[in-house]
């Protein structure tokens, strides 16, 4: 039986990504697309820079042949605790939940796109047109996730549908959430196990432990956005 404060205190969700393990293989990108019903916009729209990837692998190539260095960084919504996107939304379509998630409510969104313009991480995606699912492709859609319409913003939710199920499971078992209860699609698919997800408020969780690592850094920490995604620097000898 867990104690009362543990039960009432909301979990604070966070993700840790070990850049030393990440190989840039993009399994997470497809896992996310399938789990979250992210539309394939097609070649014409992609050519206009409108393709949507809630998580993407950013590739930075530096140096000249033969001394070329490549770095990969998976970038998803950082679920900032001081999110620049939140105050600018005129209708509260994006706001902060008690679990530290940066929420996007699709059917409240009017589509000012201000949030995307104020996101330093460029992780917000706009539905310029209605998504197309030529039959029978619509059968592969996840019934647990909204299908967005044109004119609304969308982005990573940390797989809220899985968070809800994990929390429900913990509640059924009358305990606080623990590592393994919630595994977002990207984390689950990662072939090198470079991603971790859990409750950072629980100091014994894996993410809390990794957040204390001396390799831990957050993307553009200097902006004061207080992201909930923790990157673990590469352990390069160099």
């Amino acid at each position: 039986m867990m104690n009362e404060t543990e039960k009432t205190q909301k979990p604070q969700w966070a993700m840790a990504i070990d850049l030393d393990r990440c190989t840039g293989c993009e399994a997470c990108v497809v896992a996310c697309r399938i789990e979250n019903n992210i539309a394939v916009v097609g070649p014409e729209e992609s050519a206009r820079d409108r393709s949507m990837n809630w998580i993407r692998i950013e590739r930075y190539m530096e140096g000249e042949f033969p001394d070329v260095r490549v770095r990969f960084r998976p970038v998803l919504c950082q679920h900032c605790q001081e999110a620049p996107c939140e105050p600018v939304c005129p209708v509260y379509a994006t706001y902060h939940t008690e679990e530290g998630l940066n929420a996007q409510v699709y059917n409240r969104c009017v589509g000012t796109r201000y949030c995307a313009n104020n996101c330093p991480y460029s992780v917000r995606f706009f539905n310029f047109f209605d998504p197309q699912w030529p039959a029978p492709l619509e059968k592969s859609l996840n019934p647990e996730v909204s299908i967005r319409t044109r004119g609304v913003m969308e982005k990573c939710t940390f797989c809220i549908q899985r968070i809800r199920k994990g929390e429900e499971k913990a509640r059924d078992e009358d305990r606080a959430v623990r590592d393994g209860d919630v595994i977002p699609a990207c984390v689950g698919s990662c072939p090198t196990k470079a991603m971790y997800f859990g409750n950072i408020a629980d100091s014994n969780s894996e993410v809390a432990r990794l957040a204390r690592s001396n390799r831990a850094e957050r993307l553009m920490e200097d902006l004061g956005t207080e992201p909930r995604v923790i990157y673990l620097r590469k352990r390069d000898q160099a």
């Binding site: 509260y92 706001y95 939940t97 008690e98 998630l101 929420a103 409510v105 699709y106 059917n107 409240r108 996730v145 909204s146 939710t157 809220i160 549908q161 809800r164």
Partner: peptide, 8 residues
Amino acid sequence: IDCYACHR
């Protein structure tokens, strides 16, 4: 009455 309680 959090939005995320029902919508997502």
